[in-house]
Nucleic acid binder design. Structure first.
Lengths: 189, 189
DNA sequence: CACCATACGGAGGCTCCCTCCGCTTTATCA
DNA sequence: TGATAAAGCGGAGGGAGCCTCCGTATGGTG
């Protein structure tokens, strides 16, 4: 169950590659600690790198967010394949969506913006979307074939809906689960 | 069917009151035309007022957004009462939610941020929430009593879910309606 | 009409995003 | 190994936005 490799722009030269990693790591930590509106100056400082270096590698803050998203997306996809092996069609789909929500809550804005971004058209997100679709359609199609969910469902609709759940501020895990229950009920045949 | 009046901070002195109105009007227009990230300098300019005047009245951009929201919220509530009179319990609820989505799409970010803000705790939004709850619970309770929707539903859950639909960028009315169909199916008993 | 509480305007401080360019480091090849 | 070109580095600084501060103006009241 291989997935298309996600595009990265990790540079070739030794020093540049090192700084690239430092920046992505610093960004991941900063976004997790202080949210995605951390200033890029702060991230460059954390990475021990000049602001110019950051901007040469990542032309704007979105580009940096993208780089951080890659790992997260890969994990989301991998979980889908795990559930597909262990559970029945509907349960696998439900478990995947639930893990998606749980992950979004813990990572707050990061995954929230990710979901919003799934509607955008940058080449980067297009590639990501391919991977998510691959994993998600596997589960959704199985559940459709099984007759446990509506035949007219489209994966992106389901993901938008589930993504929307996590958009509210101060969303508690309990409330998120209640909302997901409603959505899951809406998916059933 | 009266609703609690929403709090405003319209000042007493003649010139101040005039400027208050100019600012709110300018803000409403600017937000509608260019989205809620219009700069406050631009809004002050439109209103023909100094930036200092804007800031004395509205200590930050959120405060200005709040003032603009009042009318919109009142309209949303009024529609609820209208549907309650004309339609059966479930249809009234569905129609209200659909009108809510349609309104959110057309007003874009304005209503989106409104929905997010429903989770916040400012005294202003608390007062707004009272009004929305009043209107929404009327519809939801009627549908519950009618047996057409699940008994365990909570109004704020439903609103969050519907609000989440409109959070994605580039959401087409068609897609929004498909998503709403899924949610409505999930509400049914 | 005089006085003062209230309001006005906009310069300016701060932060953030991003660009530009002179200097430094790396990789390559003879 | 040493020279050279290509690639990378850092941070000053321009531009924009948010917000504060304070000297000036004005509405309302006795």
């Amino acid at each position: 169950m291989t997935s298309t490799p996600l595009p990265t722009t990790r540079p070739a030269r030794a020093d540049a590659a090192r700084n690239y990693d430092l920046l992505v790591t610093a960004a991941r930590e900063a976004f997790a600690e202080h949210g995605t509106d951390t200033s890029l100056e702060e991230i460059a400082r954390r990475a021990g790198v000049g602001i110019g270096t950051l901007y040469r590698r990542f032309p704007n803050r979105t580009a940096l967010l993208e780089a951080v998203y890659v790992d997260e997306i890969q994990q989301v996809c991998n979980r889908a394949y795990g559930f597909a092996e262990k559970l029945g069609p509907y349960d696998a789909l439900a478990a995947w969506l639930r893990s998606f929500v749980g992950y979004s809550i813990s990572k707050k804005s990061l995954a929230g913006e990710l979901t919003v971004a799934l509607g955008k058209n940058s080449e980067f997100f297009t590639a990501c979307k391919v991977n998510v679709r691959q994993a998600g359609d596997l589960l959704l199609d199985a559940a459709k074939a099984d007759g446990s969910v509506r035949q007219d469902l489209q994966l992106m609709d389901v993901l938008r809906l589930v993504g929307g759940i996590t958009m509210g501020r101060d969303m508690s895990p309990e409330q998120a689960n209640r909302l997901l229950d409603i959505v899951l009920a809406g998916l059933k045949a």
